[in-house]
């Protein structure tokens, strides 16, 4: 809670809230020292932490292929990408810390299963082509999802996202380029590329955008309702700018022609151009499909967290050493080699 919060009387609260609402409605930026409603703060912490966790957990499926990349060029590109993701995680944890939480506590919450990463990464990267499909589709979805966050109402988050988005856009191009190389390669390489797209399409289209939050995008008012309430609140506060379903449509519209150019088939027979809407139709992500894609409580959902926790626990003695050294040496400047 910010310092201003405790100091003001209930009447002042209303005035602060009115001023906050007006600021956000006018497209203004909220900064860490500004007064903000508790719900706004909680929603931001939840969203930024989930985003940071997703970057860190998202390193795993691709990280598993660093030692097997089939050319030194691709190896370099993949190392750089995984490195970017670690960097994104750090920017985002820093943004979350401006809201009064501690990175160590957020990581503990992830390790204990109290906070989550995107369920997209609860899917295994089974072949080399998966690294391309993840970058092209999952990061492609992330860019569409995250581009509006560069203008989100909370300043530190918006600034972190501007850096993240620039790098993510580069990852999408790299992923597309990797898939293009496979599609122009041997029949076996093309088959590997198609197989990867078959497995990563649904996680990207369903999970990267969250549950359906409009009737148009979902299977009806009943299933759209749970997503819609949260989505409405986030948009009122300027945290989100679009519905999940608007962004999902944008993603499908972007991917279909790209897949055609690659000669790959997106695994959804309902995909076709709708002249009237000016968009591609696709199978609506209904609640059941969403739940199925979630891959929750599967081997991989558990494995991702177990891997994280093992790294954290194995490194405990190193962090303790660094902390002990820093505490002892804090009066002596560290000598440069």
């Amino acid at each position: 809670m910010s310092a201003g919060d405790a100091a003001v009387a209930p009447a002042g609260q209303e005035e602060l809230l009115a001023r906050f609402d007006a600021l956000v409605a006018g497209g203004g930026t909220v900064e860490p020292r500004d007064w903000m409603p508790d719900g706004y703060r909680r929603m931001l912490i939840r969203q930024i932490a989930q985003h940071a966790h997703s970057e860190i957990i998202g390193m795993q499926p691709e990280g598993a292929w660093l030692t097997r990349a089939p050319s030194l060029h691709r190896k370099s590109v993949l190392i750089a990408k995984v490195q970017d993701e670690a960097g994104h995680g750090l920017y985002l944890y820093s943004a979350a810390e401006t809201l009064g939480v501690d990175r160590a506590d957020l990581l503990d919450a992830l390790h204990r299963g109290q906070q989550r990463a995107s369920a997209t990464f609860n899917h295994p990267a089974l072949t080399w082509a998966d690294t391309g499909a993840v970058a092209w589709l999952t990061d492609g979805a992330a860019v569409i999802n995250q581009a509006p966050l560069c203008r989100t109402s909370y300043g530190p988050y918006a600034r972190a996202m501007r850096r993240v988005c620039q790098e993510e856009a580069f990852h999408v191009r790299q992923g597309y380029d990797l898939m293009r190389a496979l599609c122009e390669g041997t029949p076996e390489q093309r088959a590997m590329a198609q197989d990867a797209v078959d497995r990563w399409w649904l996680p990207a289209v369903a999970l990267m955008f969250g549950p359906p939050d409009t009737e148009a995008g979902g299977a009806g008012a009943r299933t759209a309702a749970p997503g819609a309430a949260v989505s409405r609140r986030a948009r009122a506060w300027g945290i989100k700018r679009h519905t999940n379903d608007e962004l999902r449509q944008r993603f499908v519209d972007q991917c279909v022609p790209q897949a055609e150019r690659l000669g790959l088939t997106l695994p959804d027979p309902a995909i076709r151009w709708n002249e009237e809407r000016g968009h591609y139709d696709f199978t609506p992500v209904d609640w059941d499909v969403y739940r199925k894609a979630l891959g929750d409580d599967t081997h991989w959902a558990r494995q991702r967290i177990a891997h994280r926790r093992a790294a954290h626990e194995d490194g405990a003695w190193v962090r303790e050493a660094a902390a002990a050294y820093a505490a002892r040496e804090d009066t002596v400047p560290e000598e440069a080699a």
């Binding site: 390193m59 750089a80 405990a316």
Partner: peptide, 27 residues
């Protein structure tokens, strides 16, 4: 590369991948 995602801190994941990237470049 075998350290990446297994390092003691996220900063070290980043540092070790940075170093690995330079080494692959030299190679």
């Amino acid at each position: 590369c075998q350290w990446i995602t297994r390092a003691p801190t996220v900063e070290e994941d980043l540092a070790l991948s940075n170093i690995a990237l330079d080494l692959i470049g030299h190679a």
